[in-house]
Design a protein around this nucleic acid. Structure first.
Lengths: 141, 141
DNA sequence: CCTATCTGCAACTACAGTGGTTTCGATAAC
DNA sequence: GTTATCGAAACCACTGTAGTTGCAGATAGG
């Protein structure tokens, strides 16, 4: 998988929006919670918007909102919005096709990698943003 | 996870060694199958050696060997040898502790990430190098 | 209509990780 | 002793990420 924090921050953003309970939030406010720059947040929000998880509105009083109730958003949804489609990158250079292993290893692997990805997504689908919000709220500060 | 091909190439290397059926192989030969530089291969082999999956021997006629039969090596073993311990990186900067979500989101997430990692590893454990070797051998070229 | 407040987007930088390469010392077989 | 191999360090080019600045465009509200 990719060595970035997109998935984690994406979850953070959606949990924060859920915590606001319908209120619109600006990217600047969200950036204050995540502790980064508003433009970084807008970049991630645009991925979440592409996945139809949030909407944006410009102008004063504008900002960002969830498109559905937090109970209807799973970590799998966020994962699909934020991460690469390949779970494990293949070789950078194609393996030697004249080698009995190199010639077919990628094909053999792809099926297994698909199954791993499926198992990962199934686990992610078990947790919703509402679950997370509840946990966050009930934790000692 | 990290955006590199270590896991894939690690599997390739072990499958190749399994294909040799006990014969020692040099890093140069392996590099020929993977289509890269022998030093790159030795870097990865040293990770596999740290995980006690292969042994090396210097000098003429030296090279690399599996330490156990291919049926006893799973993709999980290789994954643990090659990949980072964190499945999804956390925030680069710590979130705002004064925010009700930022203050506890990482703690709330870590448990879920652990479960995802567990599910991933359980799926990986289902496939052995022997399985892969068999598939590679039976595939049309 | 005007203005303040947002988003949207492009461009640039600093930094870290990856893969590739060269080099050289250590080691073991013959 | 010669040769083949590993081991490790050093360096480079490339890429992706996060952070930052700047500005255009849209919109709410007076």
């Amino acid at each position: 998988m990719s060595a970035n924090s997109r998935f984690t921050v994406g979850i953070h953003i959606l949990t924060l929006l859920a915590h606001g309970d319908g209120e619109t939030m600006t990217s600047e406010y969200i950036a204050g919670s995540v502790n980064t720059n508003p433009v970084v947040i807008r970049r991630l929000l645009s991925l979440l918007r592409d996945a139809k998880l949030v909407t944006s509105q410009g102008g004063p009083g504008g900002g960002w909102q969830l498109t559905r109730p937090p109970r209807g958003i799973t970590l799998r949804d966020i994962y699909l919005a934020m991460e690469e489609s390949t779970i494990f990158p293949m070789h950078t250079n194609p393996p030697n096709p004249r080698c009995p292993v190199g010639g077919t290893i990628q094909e053999a692997l792809s099926g297994h990698f698909d199954e791993v990805r499926l198992a990962l997504e199934q686990q992610l689908a078990k947790t919703t943003v509402a679950d997370l919000l509840e946990e966050v709220k009930s934790m000692p500060r």
